[in-house]
Design a protein around this nucleic acid. Sequence first.
RNA 1: GGAGAGAUGGCCGAGCGGUUGAAGGCGCAGCAUUGGAAAUGCUGUAUACGGGUAACCGUAUCGAGGGUUCGAAUCCCUCUCUCUCCGCCA
Length: 418
Amino acid sequence: MLDLKLIRQNPEEVKNALGQRKPEYIKAIDDILVIDEKKRIIQQKADALKSQRNSLSKSIKSKEEAATIQAQVKNINAEIQLLDQEQANLNESLEALVLYIPNLPGTDTPFGKNETENQEVHAWGNKPILNSPKPHWEIAEALGILDFENTSRLSGSRFSSFIGLGAKLQRALIQFMLDEAIEADYLELSPPVIIQGQILRGTGQLPKFAEDLYHIENTDQYLIPTAEVPLTGFYANGQALNEADLPKKLCAYTPCFRSEAGAAGRDTRGLIRQHQFDKIELVHICKPEESAIEHEKLVKQAESILEKLELPYRRILLCTGDMGFSASKCYDLEVWFPAQNQYREISSCSNCTDFQARRLNLKFKRDNKNELVHTLNGSGLAVGRTWAAIVENYQFENKLGFKIPTVLQDYMKLSEIS
RNA sequence: GGAGAGAUGGCCGAGCGGUUGAAGGCGCAGCAUUGGAAAUGCUGUAUACGGGUAACCGUAUCGAGGGUUCGAAUCCCUCUCUCUCCGCCA
C-alpha cells in the first residue's frame, strides 16, 4: 500500500512512477485524490460537530439544565450520523482503490513494458555440453523416481510424486538449502501453510490476486502460495520491533500452493509448473536505509545455493512492466534447462520497501518513535525446479541416469542415480 | 464437541454512566546524585486520522461489530479469540 500522504503531496511523481508499470494506474491515482479530498472535508465537519457535542455534554452539571442541551445534542447527533456514514463510504472506496495500487518502482528499476525488456545482470557457470539432452521428466520417469500418471488420478493435473531416491533427493535439497541459510545466520521458522486473508492482504496477494490462491471454504483462510506470507507476516500487528534486532533474517521450508489460473497450456509437462511444490524462502526485515544493501545480500545468498550445486544460472533485473505487485525492485535468478534450451526462473528476490510493512502494520521503534520497516523476500530456492535442473544438467549422455551434485552426495550417501 | 471463566497501554493491574487516554506498579528514556555503578529522586513515556510553518489543537480508539444514552472502558446484543475442566484425537 502506498502512503496516502505521499500521493497527496507528490501526485505527479507517483503517477509517473506507476505509469511505468501500466498507464491505467494514472487514472486510479486521480480518482484517489478526488475521494481523499472529499473525505477530508467531511471529516473536518464531523470532527467539529463532535467537538461541539463533547463540550455540550460535559457542560451538563445538573438534571434541571439538562433538557435544553439534550435537545441540542440530539440535533447535532443526527448530523454527525449522516457525515460519519458518508465518510465511511468514502473510506471504503478509497481503501478499495488503494489496495489495488502496486508499489512504486525504484529509481534503479529499468523501464520496460514486459519480460522482453528485463536486463541480464550476469550469467554464471558452464552449460553442460550435451548432444541430445533429455527433459527431466523423461529421465526421472524412466528411472522410476518421479510419477505424474498415478498422481494425476490422486489429485488431478499439475501434481506429481517423488518416489524412492527421487523423494530422498528432494529431502536432501531441503536439508541442504536450510543448512545453508542457517549457516548464513537465518532463523528457521516452520510456520502453518494455512493463513488468514488479512495477512495475505498485507503481503499483497489479496485482494487483487485471489484467483491464484486456494481458499478454504467458509473461512477467511487460504493455502499459502509462498512462505513469504507467513514469514513477512509473522510480526504483523504486534509490538514494534527493536531497532537493535534489525535486520531480521528468517527462512522457512514449506509447501506452496498455487491455482495457476490463467496458465492453462503452459509448461504442462514436468515439474516446472505444479499446483503444489516445496520451496525454501528467505525474508529480511530491516530499516529503510538498509534495504538496498540487504537486497543485494539476499540475492547473493540465493545465488550461492546455485553455485554450490554447480548449476548454470543468470541474474535478471526485472523491468517496471514485469515486476510483481509488492516489489519496488526485483531480481530473478534463472537456472539453465538444457532440454528446453533456455533459462527458467528458480528464485525471485524482491525489495518491497515499506509497501508490505504499511499493509501489515509492521514497525520498529527508533528514538522512541514507530517507523515502518522494509521487507524483502526471495526463494532460496524452489525445490522442485532445482530437482529438475539437477536431473537435466547432470544427466549422463551414454546411459540412463544423472550424477548427484558434489555438495549433496553426503546428504544422499550416493554419487549418482542410474 | 460439552461446561465454565476471561479479554483494559510494552507488561502486570485498578476502574461509581460524566475533567479517565485511562489510577497504581513494572519496564523503558532523559536529568539529578556518584570517582563509576547500584540504590534513590525528578521528569517523560500508546496509536491512527485531520488541522497548523511550528508550539500545539480537534477527533477516534479499553478484543471486534452493533445498540441504549445528552454522555459508555463502565449497561444491552452479536461475533472472535484466550484460559480451565470433560470428551475425542495425530
